[in-house]
């Protein structure tokens, strides 16, 4: 591939920013990671046969930068007993004492239709913001960066069962929020 044009780079930059913001939930940190990534990419100068191959390579660089940031921050950000209690309380509130759903998850019909709706994405963003920070971080590593369970456990030095508990909470939180704010009766 020829050297990427200015327009290619602008598009790539805006993709990388979204990616980094989703994972880091901090605009300034995301900006730094993307900046470093683009600089490293420009220095790299490897040969690529096409745009998508180039993009994948740059995203690979960004993943490493993001993981560095997460590693540094996770040392400062372990979950306090208080946060742990409030998270587990949130989950427990979704179920009855006997383990049945407090409110049965509804049939969302054909949810793919919502993907075309701008308002849906606003709610979606809001719901992501409402997820507890540490839970959101592992969830994004899993679903956005598409790292494996093993990789995440290695990076964050946590056990698999610990990770699975967090992913379960993240999924319950996001689906609960979308149901309340979008797919539920109130939203329609």
């Amino acid at each position: 591939m020829a050297i990427p044009t200015g327009e290619d780079l602008r598009q790539l930059r805006s993709y990388l920013l979204r990616y980094a913001r989703l994972q880091l939930r901090d605009a300034a940190l995301a900006e730094d990671a993307v900046q470093e990534t683009l600089l490293a990419a420009l220095d790299g100068g490897a040969a690529f046969s096409g745009k998508s191959q180039y993009k994948n390579w740059v995203v690979g660089i960004l993943k490493h930068k993001i993981i560095d940031v997460i590693r540094k921050r996770s040392r400062e950000q372990s979950l306090t007993a208080e946060e742990e209690a409030s998270e587990s309380e949130m989950i427990e509130g979704m179920f009855e004492a006997g383990g049945q759903w407090h409110r049965l998850p509804a049939n969302w019909g054909n949810p793919e239709k919502s993907l075309e709706d701008k308002k849906f994405w606003q709610i979606f963003e809001r719901c992501l913001e409402l997820m507890p920070a540490r839970t959101a971080r592992v969830f994004m590593m899993r679903e956005v960066m598409e790292l494996t369970s093993d990789e995440i456990c290695g990076e964050l030095a946590i056990t698999q069962s610990n990770l699975w508990v967090m992913l379960h909470r993240a999924r319950l939180s996001l689906r609960g929020c979308l149901e309340t704010r979008w797919f539920g009766d109130a939203a329609k």
């Binding site: 759903w101 998850p105 949810p111 793919e112 993907l115 994405w121 679903e143 999924r171 149901e179």
Partner: peptide, 27 residues
């Protein structure tokens, strides 16, 4: 259990939606 069935489908959807959000065109 209808509730858990719905939950199961929702898990597929939220994963896919998140990747769509990551990759969608920028507006």
């Amino acid at each position: 259990c209808d509730g858990c069935n719905n939950f199961s489908k929702q898990l597929d959807f939220i994963g896919a939606a998140l990747r769509r959000y990551r990759d969608r065109d920028h507006d």
